[in-house]
Amino acid sequence: MSSATADRRRADPARARERMLVMLALPALLLLGVIFIWPLLRLLSMSVADGTLDQFEKAALDDLYVMVLYESMEIAVLVTVICLALAYPVAAWLAQAGRTGFILGMFFLLLPFWTSILVRTYAWMVLLGRNGVINRTLRDWGWIEFPLPLLHNLTGVLIGIVHVMLPYMVIPIYAALLRIDPDLRRAAEGLGAPAWRAFLRVTLPLSLPGVFAGCALVFVITLGFFITPALLGGGQVMMIAMLIEQQVREFLDWNFAAALATVLLAATLVIYAALAKLTGGQGHGAR
């Protein structure tokens, strides 16, 4: 390439813009690299620190870890499904609510993030316990005779996690819905679609990228929960992150913890890729 062409290329405003954007993104990318990728690589290297794959063998062949990993996935799927069911209507409402409604909705949605996880979890204990607010109220109203088992079991864990994860589902779906031209819904209705069919045929498919992003976020983050399931599960629920934390904190077996974390990471990536393949095809096609 002659230097004249090179000059011209450098002067190309589109290229200049692209270059500027890369420069602007660089600090964030570097930060991510330093505080995320580097420790991740350290972690991976720790899992094979003794020069063998023994740690992985233990993680993969011991049915304890395989079962807990499977159960964690089950819980993550459940949380994702519940979040999706709860979040979609909220996102749809927010997308058409005025400014005040939006600010109000977001406030309540983000409330859990302003309290520490321990405070939040103890608050749930107060609410959900056998003699908690909910059970007492229902008994006072004569709706139930015996307290509902809401705490110290899977139900409690699901409630606690869903509460925290809801915004991660609402916000991407909200963003996706906001990007849909309102004329599309009008067009569908004008062409003879009742509201629910317009939703199924037009709004829903167009919001799929948001749904997918939300599901991926919720699923992946849920897999890493350990305080909430430990406290609200009352021992009935075991998640892989709890076992990893045990290895790190109690036994200082960092090599094995690293192997477990690597297995979790790999499993997460596989499921993420599968999900992306499943919904990405048509979802990302929209606008």
């Binding site: 103890y122 204990m125 107060v126 316990g129 056998r130 003699n131 908690g132 705490l151 110290h152 430990a230 406290l231 009352g234 021992g235 009935q236």
Partner: peptide, 20 residues
């Protein structure tokens, strides 16, 4: 008959107070 397996030191006291 173990309805709760506790994790943090504050839990058992609270469980008794709450009549859990």
């Amino acid at each position: 008959h173990i309805s709760v397996w506790w994790t943090t030191g504050a839990q058992p006291a609270q469980l008794l107070v709450d009549r859990e």
